[in-house]
Design a protein around this nucleic acid. Structure first.
Lengths: 233, 233
DNA sequence: TAGTGGTCTAGACCACCTT
DNA sequence: AGGTGGTCTAGACCACTAC
């Protein structure tokens, strides 16, 4: 007697993905209708839907009503990253986390900062510069602007004890977020503050967040030389 | 007479997300059971499941059988990127794409390259160096190693006409992919080949792919100065 | 306009894990 | 051991869009 294990949607997904990996289906090729695949594999249409939906989310396959499902003609690599809190990143690497406030003060934003937050004109905001340390050495320098009109409570926080990042993450959820990754050479100021050679290539992350239409904060996070952001798909 | 529009799972998701954004639910707080939420919102449990599943995928919420659903105590920023083919990236920016092969030859891999591909010892592979151009200027330099044991057909391709990247994307699907992003200063060789100043900070992407356990290729893609990788969540 | 994927529902059963 | 989320099914209807 044969025990037929029930097929899960992951099994169905892997089976279908297998047709692509072994060359049965090439970029641009069209699949049968979900319902026919379901019949052929002996599962319900909903299960095929779930499997195909997953492949579509990963950029493997393209689905269109009436147009059917095709292997993406120009496959893209789709990667997902978690940007952790600095403390967690340091601790995940087995280091001892440290934090050091450089300065926090109300200042008028430079134009590019206002633009990043979708503001037409410069306004006064809270600027916070701080260092995140691993084992006593600089891991990350952050230069942050907090929109005090949206987050007035930030002015009552002791930013020498708690990083603005952690406070915001725990107290001000966002609904939209912009991320820019780039490379930048250390200028004199960065070199001095981070303790690296002038000209060193640094990995930079700019993050801007909003709650609805209201800007919350924009931050430039500059990583130590040699930093790598890694993911596996 | 009131028209009650049926609630979609996106509506339900946004409603639930709203409870977090307006502070009704704070990090660590536990939600009611899906079924109770469904009753309260007047939809089926499956719809709440779909909505909560989406929030969980985005890192907003944590779900555990028997443990229920909670707002993530330490929210992370989860970002998804598409890494496009160089040609498409250039064309999407409104530029004219160009491609130039520097050299392609069989060479013994250096140890770090073998290690990236999970190989114990160096082996002979096809090394391909090439430039991708935008409006005649260097946009991207790639230094690639192709595992000819997995992809022997690559040896029959005219790599001066078609980039190895595009050929692989269209002819050799992968099932696993490793990505590393970093910053690197231009050394003399890179500066010469890319036409930038020595010491310029460059954005670097290392990508390694496998089909099952079989390594396919590993490539280091070095972007022009000022390049930014952008995403919006 | 007809074919295809997208979603909702109700019910059942399963798998995991906290208590 | 029991409660909670995870999944499967069958059927219905909807929404897009290729033809």
């Amino acid at each position: 007697m044969t025990i037929t294990k029930r097929r899960s949607w992951q099994d169905v997904r892997d089976e279908i993905h297998g047709w692509i990996l072994d060359g049965q289906m090439a970029p641009g090729d069209r699949f049968e209708r979900d319902e026919d695949i379901a019949t052929r594999l002996g599962c319900s249409r909903a299960t095929v839907q779930r499997a195909m939906g997953d492949l579509a989310e990963r950029g493997v396959v393209e689905r269109r009503r009436k147009g059917g499902t095709r292997v993406r003609p120009d496959p893209v690599t789709r990667a997902t990253f978690d940007i952790p809190i600095a403390r967690h990143e340091v601790e995940a690497r087995g280091g001892v986390y440290g934090y050091q406030l450089i300065q926090a003060a109300l200042e008028k934003t430079p134009r590019p900062v206002a633009a990043a937050l979708d503001l037409r004109a410069p306004v006064e905001m809270l600027r916070v510069e701080a260092l995140h340390l691993m084992d006593g050495r600089v891991f990350l320098y952050e230069d942050r602007w907090v929109f005090t009109r949206t987050v007035p409570e930030i002015l009552t926080v002791d930013l020498s004890a708690e990083s603005a990042n952690e406070w915001l993450v725990h107290n001000k959820p966002y609904s939209a977020c912009d991320l820019h990754f780039s490379a930048q050479a250390a200028d004199g100021y960065l070199a001095g503050i981070m303790g690296v050679e002038a000209g060193a290539a640094l990995f930079v992350l700019n993050r801007t967040t909003w709650s609805g239409d209201a800007p919350i904060t924009t931050v430039k996070a500059v990583h130590m030389p040699g930093y790598r952001m890694v993911t596996r798909v």
